[in-house]
Amino acid sequence: MKRSSKQFILIVLFHCFICTTALSTPISLTLGFDSLYISEGRNNLTDGHLLSVLAEKEFEGQGSSRWLTHLWKAESVNNTDNHYQELNIGLGYSIFLDRLTITPQYTYLTFQHENSHDHELGLDIEYQGSWALVYLMSYVHSKQSAGSFFSWRVTHQRKINDRFTLAPYISVGINNRYVVNEHNGWNDLQVGLEANYRFNSRLKLQSYLANSKGLQKQQGETLEDFSWFGLSLNYLF
């Protein structure tokens, strides 16, 4: 993709953020550090860590719904191999039905270190269950690979006090040609613990510990077992 096209997309998204600042919902900005960059049970970095910045904005839709926009920029640090760079620009639409939330979404991804890009369509279905359990089903389809990836996650949200919350979770993923040239079917099992501390109504510290185990691993695949952690600072403008 030409540089001018990338700049045009960024300008359009920035304009959308500016145009919606007058609305009641704030802009959320998150600065993050991840010891590894794990997705679909695979480490996207040959070595080093990941630094990222995420900007998110919500604004009201029709009835019980809400538009979601986000921009995520990430780069690898302390790596001796190829310098990883990724940019995601996304738009979603959440529909709220009592305890159920349905969110179709579109994401444009560009990988500057590879000079490549992708378009993804996704769907999240979340259900707020009893005993502070949250059930999430996620589906994503990639234009580049012409494949899909499914995941199911269960989270237990526990409020320790007004500032501190813990959220242990477990998830499982299924590959359907989303990760090309590797086996389809059961992909990975992940368990983790998220911890959030809110300093005030605008500033929040977020952290997590996670472990991922590859399922039905085959020789020569990039699917492995990993343990990693992350820290991030979130501020509402």
Rank of each mutant, 00 (worst) to 15 (best):
Q7P: 07
T21I: 13
A22Y: 15
L23Q: 13
L23H: 11
L23I: 12
L29C: 09
L31T: 10
N44E: 15
D47P: 02
E56G: 11
S64D: 14
S64A: 14
R66N: 13
W67H: 08
A74D: 09
T80A: 06
D81W: 07
N82L: 15
H83G: 06
E86W: 05
E86N: 11
L87Y: 06
G90T: 02
I95W: 11
T103W: 06
Q105W: 00
L109S: 05
L109N: 07
T110E: 11
S116E: 15
D118M: 03
E120T: 09
W131K: 15
Y135Q: 04
Y135L: 01
M137S: 15
Y139R: 10
V140K: 10
S142C: 05
S148I: 06
F150V: 00
S151C: 01
R153D: 00
Q157P: 07
R158D: 00
R163W: 01
G173Y: 08
N175K: 04
N176Q: 14
V180P: 15
H183L: 09
N187H: 12
Q190I: 10
V191M: 13
V191H: 11
V191R: 10
N200Y: 05
S201E: 13
L203T: 06
Y208S: 02
A210I: 03
K213T: 15
G214D: 00
L215N: 03
T222Q: 13
D225C: 08
F226E: 07
G230I: 02
L233F: 08
